[in-house]
Simulated scan of single mutants.
Amino acid sequence: MLVIGIAGKELSPAEREWLQHPACAGVILFTRNFASRDQVAELTQSIREAAPRPQLICVDQEGGRVQRFRDGYAELPPLEEFGKLFANDAPAALRLAEEHAWLMASEIRATGVDLSFAPVVDLGRGNRAIGNRAFHAEPAIVAEFTRAYVRGMHAAGMAATLKHFPGHGSVLEDTHFDEAIDPRPLEALREEDLVPFVAGIDAGADAVMMAHVSYPAVAPEPAGYSPRWMRQILREQMGFRGVIFSDDIGMAAAESAGGVAARICAHLDAGCDVVLVCPPALVADSLAAMDSRPAGDTAALASLMGRGAAGWQGLLAEARYDGARTALSGFQVG
């Protein structure tokens, strides 16, 4: 199954055709797709009406620099700010992180979008792509934040997605532009980067997004299309039963698998349930690559659909909404 990107703020005729393909299971939205709350709600509705089957509509609304919807939405601080507070007041930091999760998820659900790919549970150790998107450098602290964030998202009726498995924070390279290689053995990863994922799975996280990072001491291929990482470690050893997403196959680090069709097949054959095809320029070829493959299991994605009534009027009437916005407004430790 594929989750695809679209080009603009309304569906084009070609994009309506893409939604007819049996492999198209959802759409991911970006800043290029957003003008206002009303517009993005209309776009979401048009996607649902154009498709012959339910579509999982997604976004990255993490806070900080990765917040696709801004005008009309709470300004969400980056996760690193909660990590800074933790040293002085751990209960307050965890409480605020949970409110951040609830607020983010509630606004996205009110818009009619099902899923924000969150939380980032990578360790904050200087990776160029992660930066202040990570809570903290210490695995045990990130694990505590992971549990709190999953609770907050679930309270808002949204599934939680742990990313980027098995850990993107301890390498320098940004996989949007470069290959990234982490030489550490599995034992070291279990003691460090995997700790927050264990906590998140225990907390009931519904999905995991893979990293386009290679760990040659563990498997020969990058984690995103590694049967060892997905089938043996994540599924069998860690007991994860939810949905596995690839990261965007348009990223430079995914090109090691080959052309578009080769990337799609490599990820799905290795154990990914859903492949993200974010650049619209790659969607037609990606759908064509799916023509010869069996249909995926859409029942798994049904568990990720937003729960509860979506709508801004009801959200604005909630006392918790004003409280969360006030608590997080301008929140910054320094």
Rank of each mutant, 00 (worst) to 15 (best):
V3Y: 00
I6V: 15
G8A: 11
K9P: 04
K9S: 13
A14T: 12
Q20K: 15
Q20F: 00
Q20W: 01
P22L: 10
A25R: 13
A25M: 09
V27D: 02
F30W: 04
N33C: 09
S36M: 07
S36W: 05
S36Q: 06
R37Q: 13
D38M: 05
Q39M: 10
Q39V: 10
E42F: 00
L43A: 07
T44L: 01
Q45V: 00
S46T: 06
I47Y: 03
P52N: 07
R53C: 00
L56G: 06
I57H: 08
C58P: 01
C58E: 04
C58K: 02
V59Y: 01
R65Q: 06
V66L: 08
V66R: 07
Q67D: 04
R70H: 05
R70G: 03
D71H: 07
G72A: 08
A74G: 09
L79R: 01
E80Q: 07
E80S: 13
F82W: 05
L85F: 02
F86Y: 15
A87T: 08
A90R: 14
A92W: 03
A97L: 12
H100Q: 15
M104Y: 00
A105F: 02
R109W: 08
G112T: 04
V113Y: 03
L115A: 11
P119S: 03
V121K: 03
G124R: 14
N127S: 03
A129P: 00
F135D: 02
I141A: 11
A143W: 11
A148S: 14
G152K: 05
H154S: 07
M158S: 14
M158W: 01
K163E: 10
S170T: 14
H176N: 11
H176T: 08
D178N: 14
I181C: 14
D182N: 13
P183K: 09
R184D: 13
L186G: 01
E187R: 12
E187M: 05
R190C: 13
L194T: 11
V195M: 02
V195A: 01
F197C: 05
V198R: 15
A199S: 10
I201R: 00
A207L: 13
Y215G: 06
P216F: 04
P220Q: 08
A223L: 02
S226W: 06
I233L: 14
L234T: 09
Q237P: 08
G239Q: 10
G239P: 12
V243G: 03
F245R: 01
F245K: 00
F245L: 13
D248T: 03
A253E: 08
A257Y: 09
V260R: 08
A262S: 14
C265N: 12
C265I: 12
H267V: 00
G271R: 09
D273F: 02
V274S: 06
C278D: 02
P279W: 09
S286W: 13
A288Q: 15
M290F: 09
D291F: 05
S292Y: 11
R293G: 06
A299T: 14
L301Q: 07
M305R: 14
G306I: 05
R307Q: 15
G308M: 13
G308W: 04
G311T: 06
Q313C: 10
A317N: 12
E318Y: 02
T326I: 08
A327S: 12
